[in-house]
Simulated scan of single mutants.
Amino acid sequence: MTSSDDIVISPTGWVAEQARLYEESDGTKGTTVMGAPCLLLDYRGRRTAQWRRTVLIYGRDGDDYLIVASNGGAPTHPLWYLNLRDEPDVRLRVGGERFPARAETLSPEEKARVWPGLVELFAPYADYAEKTTRDIPVVRLRRTDTAERD
Rank of each mutant, 00 (worst) to 15 (best):
A129Y: 09
R85W: 05
Y58Q: 04
I136L: 09
G45D: 02
V90I: 08
V90Y: 01
D61G: 01
V68F: 04
P124D: 07
A103F: 00
P88E: 06
R134E: 06
E120R: 15
R98A: 11
R143D: 03
R60F: 04
R149W: 12
D64S: 13
W51G: 09
P100H: 01
E87M: 12
T146V: 10
P100E: 03
A101K: 10
E104R: 15
A147E: 09
E97W: 00
I67S: 06
R91M: 02
L56S: 00
R93D: 11
R93Q: 14
G59S: 12
T76M: 15
A126F: 01
E130Q: 12
R149L: 15
L118I: 05
T146I: 11
D127W: 08
D86T: 00
I67D: 03
R53D: 02
G95I: 03
Y81W: 14
Y65T: 11
S70A: 09
E87R: 15
P108T: 09
G96T: 04
I57C: 07
P124H: 13
V114F: 02
L40D: 05
D145F: 01
L66S: 09
E104C: 13
L141I: 06
V114N: 05
R140M: 06
D127F: 09
D86M: 01
T105L: 11
L84D: 02
D42L: 01
D61A: 11
Y43P: 01
D127A: 15
Y58N: 05
E148T: 08
S107D: 08
A103I: 01
